[in-house]
Design a binder for these strands. Structure first.
Lengths: 200, 200
DNA sequence: CTTAAACTATACCGTTAGGTACAATTTATT
DNA sequence: AATAAATTGTACCTAACGGTATAGTTTAAG
């Protein structure tokens, strides 16, 4: 084992704290003081553990995608559940997360993607945010294209557009959640968009 | 007439330029250098004309509401147009604006409202942003409650929820527009949410 | 028990943030 | 022409930004 003083903090815990700060303030709005204070460490510890603000952000973003987004995906492919119910479960699982987070509401990705237009986001951070914006569209398009029930209902005809409609609504609920609208209120909107694409 | 040197710039033009910067970068992200450069003036001129960054922002926000949002409202109350078509015209008018802006895409208000959670927005700016977030809900609720065709269709039963569903979708299109999704693509989503609340 | 590696704390770096003092300039009034 | 009011440009203020040098502390290995 390598010698030397041991870390007095858990990297994963610190990363999660950083994620919360970016979730609350975005990339530009999150200062190193905000970050290190919530991570419970000081700047040199942060720089030695994560590199710099940008690479901390990239790791926090990957952490968000893995732990906060991907878990909702499997709900789309549960067996013995109707397409409508799978989509409802999936979307409400996301909306629940958007509304549940104690301080930082909404969606981390929606917030940070909105900063891209400013031109103040570094290159690699921009890349990962743009990639993350494409994934859901591919996911929904693939679902509507291949799912048996989707094909039976003819939803495969407009697979991408249907997926985009759901994704657009989820971006809307993210924004609404950030404004303090609660889950039960947003559920109605989810039901309406599902009905709108033909899933009554 | 009062004596003294004359302003070398048009206040309204400068205010519109400031609006564009806030639209692109949000309140926190827009620096005085960004602002004054695009306004074509220097800092003392800006401070004497508008007070400070916060009051410039408040005036820019009021300008946005008056010139960019309110014009869409009248489309909701045109005579001899069906409720569905009025809502479609209204929403597509907004989506067109969200997509048209050359650099700053999306919605100024959605962008800046997302900054509220950070706690870095001054008091009065926070107030006007929160007020602006309530107005559309009231507008749609009133429409669904009072409109004859809405009552005939039973949409008045869930007036507020229906209004919220439309508003949520428009916040979603704002986010999508900022990611570069074009108007014709978003039109499908508008059609789907209208169908979803019963306007086929 | 020394050594060297790794981590922590403090203090600091240059830059930019929002905001202002002040002198120079332009204008209408006297 | 002289004056007073208003605007402009420059130069500057303090505070906070992202980032780092360095000295001190803790730890495993020799």
């Amino acid at each position: 084992m390598s010698s030397g003083r041991k870390k007095s903090f858990d990297e994963d815990t610190a990363l999660n704290a950083a994620m919360d700060v970016f979730w609350q303030k975005g990339y530009v709005g999150a200062s190193l003081t905000d970050l290190t204070k919530r991570m419970g460490i000081n700047k040199p510890s942060m720089y030695s553990a994560f590199g710099n603000k940008e690479s901390l952000f990239i790791k926090a973003t990957q952490c968000y995608i893995e732990t906060k987004m991907k878990p909702h995906v499997e709900l789309l492919f549960e067996e013995d559940v109707s397409l409508k119910q799978r989509l409802k479960n999936h979307m409400m699982s996301i909306v629940t997360m958007q509304c549940d987070s104690e301080q930082a509401q909404g969606c981390y990705l929606v917030l940070c993607q909105s900063e891209l237009v400013s031109g103040d986001i570094p290159e690699q951070a921009e890349s990962i945010l743009k990639e993350a914006d494409v994934m859901p569209i591919q996911l929904y398009t693939e679902l509507f294209t291949s799912d048996i029930e989707s094909i039976e209902l003819g939803l495969n005809k407009n697979a991408q557009a249907n997926g985009l409609a759901l994704y657009t609504m989820l971006k809307g609920t993210a924004s609404m959640a950030r404004s303090g609208i609660d889950k039960s209120t947003l559920e109605y909107s989810i039901d309406r968009i599902l009905a709108g694409i033909g899933l009554h």
